[in-house]
């Protein structure tokens, strides 16, 4: 899709009839995300336990770290023990692992994917590239700190972190969820304008709606 396709325009139907379309309104929801305040009661604690024990990772690798996620499924590391499963679609997943460096082109896709995930959603950032730029600190095309663009719950340091470090990060995330501290989705909704300003500062051709569902 290119930038021009999103604007209001007139098209001619096969019958020769002229009508106006506005793709941004027709195909996308223009509402901003809303904060869903967690009710602090015993049910929420029970739900938090369920969320922490059933972590569905989105199968989306951005950088070289994606190769470190594959061994987690193998007998040696076997992340399934911790209730971790991989899902192919952002609708069903609730953990997005940013695996390594993010070019601005990928950042655009990551933002779309993150916004399609449903409310309790968590972000784990792998490697020094997502923390301070790492070995790509002087690259013309990669961002240097991820938490300006997405709310990050857990950073896993290393270049690259080994699968053990990834598992340790997941265990850390579990304790965060159980104590109710992993509220990244609500943080994103609250500081939506700040995040959008930062995102638009580095993504030069913003050819999508402000919020993708």
């Amino acid at each position: 899709m290119s930038l021009e396709d999103l604007y209001r325009k007139t098209t001619i139907s096969p019958d020769g009839e002229e009508f106006e379309i506005n793709p941004i309104e027709d195909y996308f929801c223009t509402d901003k995300p809303e904060e869903v305040k967690p009710v602090q009661n015993i049910l929420e604690k029970f739900y938090n336990w369920a969320r922490s024990e059933s972590i569905w990772i989105l199968g989306f690798g951005t950088g070289c770290g994606a190769i470190e996620m594959r061994p987690l499924m193998t007998p040696r590391f076997d992340a399934y023990r911790y209730g971790i499963q991989w899902r192919p679609t952002p609708r069903q997943a609730n953990l997005l692992i940013i695996s390594g460096y993010l070019s601005t082109k990928t950042l655009k896709r990551v933002i779309r994917v993150y916004e399609q995930m449903q409310n309790p959603k968590y972000v784990m950032a792998l490697g020094s590239c997502t923390i301070n730029g790492g070995m790509y600190f002087d690259s013309y095309n990669t961002i240097k700190r991820l938490d300006y663009y997405l709310p990050v719950d857990v950073y896993v340091a290393g270049c690259m972190p080994r699968p053990e470090a990834l598992l340790a990060g997941v265990v850390k995330l579990k304790t965060l969820i159980k104590t109710g501290m992993a509220e990244g989705a609500n943080d994103y909704a609250n500081r939506f304008d700040w995040y959008k300003t930062n995102q638009k500062a580095v993504i030069l051709n913003w050819d999508m709606p402000d919020y993708n569902w």
């Binding site: 301070n132 730029g133 002087d138 690259s139 013309y140 240097k144 700190r145 930062n198 500062a201 580095v202």
Partner: peptide
């Protein structure tokens, strides 16, 4: 003649 390091320092948020 494109200064990558200066560009990255100015353009991207740094820690």
């Amino acid at each position: 003649d494109f200064d990558t390091k200066a560009f990255a320092a100015n353009f991207y948020h740094q820690r």
